[in-house]
């Protein structure tokens, strides 16, 4: 239904606090505007978007009509170990969007202090 793009650093080492960028293609129709024919477009926004890692919700955003179309969310996570990053969002129409990414976390080198 909707496409989304995720950006994470190329190399993530255990203990790193790394930045994620997620861009979701969604009109985030506010319900206040009209289309090219002049018809009012019903509100349809993403109600919530969550990021699940290691079976736990590690990020959640609940946008409203005040969030731009094709929303971009940037946030941070602390890397512990490899796993699947699972993004899931639901909009007013009930459509579910998903994105999965295999997160690879390299074990910390003894001589290398973890970044923060």
């Amino acid at each position: 239904m909707t496409t989304a793009r995720l950006q994470v650093p190329n190399r993530i080492i255990e203990g790193d606090v790394f930045k994620l960028r997620l861009l979701v293609q969604h009109p985030m129709d506010s319900g206040f505007l009209r289309d090219l024919e002049g018809v009012l477009v019903k509100r349809n926004v993403i109600r919530h978007l969550q990021c699940i890692l290691h079976d736990k919700e590690v990020f959640r955003v609940e946008p409203t009509t005040g969030t731009s179309a094709n929303p971009l969310f940037e946030f941070y996570l602390r890397a512990t170990h490899s796993g699947e990053l699972y993004f899931r969002w639901v909009d007013d129409k009930g459509y579910i969007g998903e994105l999965r990414h295999n997160l690879v976390v390299e074990p910390a080198n003894q001589s290398q202090a973890p970044k923060s």
Partner: peptide, 15 residues
Amino acid sequence: DFANPALPAMDKGAK
């Protein structure tokens, strides 16, 4: 080159 709001449409075009 990641968050340009036109990029999702590019991805769609490629598909």
